[in-house]
């Protein structure tokens, strides 16, 4: 029990430190690294709540895949560490104050709520490796394919739409003068026989015979 409390406070301190590091650091690259640390600390908290599958998904999908995407984009754009300009809007100046007020409000709402079970550790659940165990992949799969089938399918469709949208957004246009209207997007499909000079190097270069065969 005492071990659990120590682990909670270590992980909570790591999560808060990571979150503060994301917002405080001026270089976006350090922000991304701080978010990775934050996600790892959150995975420990998920394990304390006996959500083993979600902790694994958090580490593999979030801290692994999504953060790699962030790192690539930061490396592509270049971490322009922006100095804080003295002239900012009132929204930016009142931001930390608003965040503090929001935290106090939510904390009062949580502590003062009438939910009796908030002060407990939750009911005893079956943990372990069984199919019925709490937070196991078996329980997840059963819930996703029975009770939550429609949200599951909607989520997969959302992923498909996002993938197509990312390809449309990030592909290379013809030039800077191209304003990229909807008609233009429809016309400039890769199948068009429009001889563009920058499309030529995308074809296979003529390989000298014998060079690539061996």
């Amino acid at each position: 029990m005492i071990f659990e409390q120590i682990l909670f406070f270590i992980a909570a301190a790591g999560a808060i430190a990571g979150a503060l590091g994301v917002t405080v650091s001026r270089n976006p690259f350090y922000s991304v690294l701080a978010l990775v640390a934050h996600l790892i600390a959150l995975a420990v908290l998920f394990l304390l709540l006996s959500a083993e599958f979600l902790a694994a998904a958090q580490l593999v999908v979030y801290a692994g895949a999504v953060m790699v995407l962030y790192v690539f984009v930061v490396a592509y754009i270049g971490g322009s560490d922006e100095p804080l300009q003295p002239v900012r809007g009132p929204v930016a100046r009142l931001g930390p104050l608003f965040a503090g007020v929001l935290f106090v409000e939510v904390a009062i709402a949580v502590i003062g709520s009438g939910l009796k079970a908030l002060g407990t550790r939750g009911p005893e659940v079956q943990t372990g490796a069984g199919r019925e165990a709490y937070g196991s992949p078996g329980q997840f799969g059963e819930l996703l394919l029975t009770d939550f089938l429609l949200p599951f399918e909607a989520a997969s469709f959302l992923l498909l739409v996002a993938a197509v949208g990312a390809v449309v957004l990030a592909r290379r246009r013809r030039g800077l003068e191209d304003t990229g209207t909807v008609d233009d997007l429809a016309r400039s499909s890769p199948e068009s026989d429009d001889p563009r000079p920058e499309m030529v190097p995308q074809g296979d270069p003529p390989v000298p015979t014998g060079a690539g065969a061996s």
Partner: peptide, 10 residues
Amino acid sequence: AMIFAIGVGG
């Protein structure tokens, strides 16, 4: 709640 508030401030 604290993590959410830090995100809002950011």
